[in-house]
Amino acid sequence: MAVEEASGSASVVKDVASSMEVEAFRRLFPLQYIERYLDSAVRPDGRPLGRARPTDVVLGQVPTTDGSALVRLGNTTMLAGVKLELCVPSAETPDQGRIAIDFQMPPICSPHVRPGRPAEDACAINEQLSIVLASSQLLDLRQLSITSGKSAWVAYLDIYCLNADGSLLDAALLASAAALMDLQIPTVSINNDGKVQIVSSREKQDQPMVDAEEGQETKSKFVEGRSLKLGPVPVALTCMLHKKHLLADPTAEEEAVLQTVLVVVLDSPDKLISLYKPGGQVVATTSTVMDCIALTRLRLKEVHSILEEATQTHEED
């Protein structure tokens, strides 16, 4: 019944709308509900069409990891952590480490995710993240090298979605970048045979003294711990296209109803890392693409200052 009415004439819907409670109208005619907002250039949550939701970045939330970050984008929450392990670099790239990205959507994040096989969306976002990180110059893998050809770090970057309320790639990418910013590479000792060992901070204080006493007997070399030198941080912005409207940073409700999505990733105002538009009912014209890029440029500035602020507060603590 409701379906037939929804696809029927707009006047019927208007009549129904005038005599119905807002919440009931929202459930029965989700598209018309959102369209009524869009026609007056505002979103159901009160935002203008082109503005992203308030964003929060907190670094170093998980003490068991080598670097972590918690990102909130409106209600969308992502927790990212990086764990470092020693590995032997591959023969083709002897002076590079590796990064392994795993994006997870546990059933806790959304009613649409069931336990078991990873959701299709999760796989797609995981792949997008890997491509974006590989295409941008955020992390130079040579920084993960310890001794060329012998040892390097492999960084396991795990991103957990705790609350999936739309624009998942934006939040996941921001969380990944923030976790890498927080990453501290531990001090290692390299002995004569080239064997690498991680030195905990307590041992580090003892070890040099032993070395000094025993003189030349132990010749293990220390490589001091450090944080990574990262390139420009890529920033993603999910845009929804609907009729002539352009919405930035949609919520899950908007994503479900409006369907045509376009994700732009920039790492500087003129450098396009990715432009991803997987089908949908609306085609993008050149001018729409330019509008999306312009919105992402604004967002880029915003996110960079948020990240800067987050690093400062983290250092003060």
């Binding site: 450098k271 538009k277 085609v283 890029i293």
Partner: peptide, 15 residues
């Protein structure tokens, strides 16, 4: 001329 789908790999300038 409308873009239905666009998938990019690698970085490039907007131009």
């Amino acid at each position: 001329h409308g873009i239905i789908t666009c998938v990019t790999r690698g970085a490039m300038s907007v131009d």
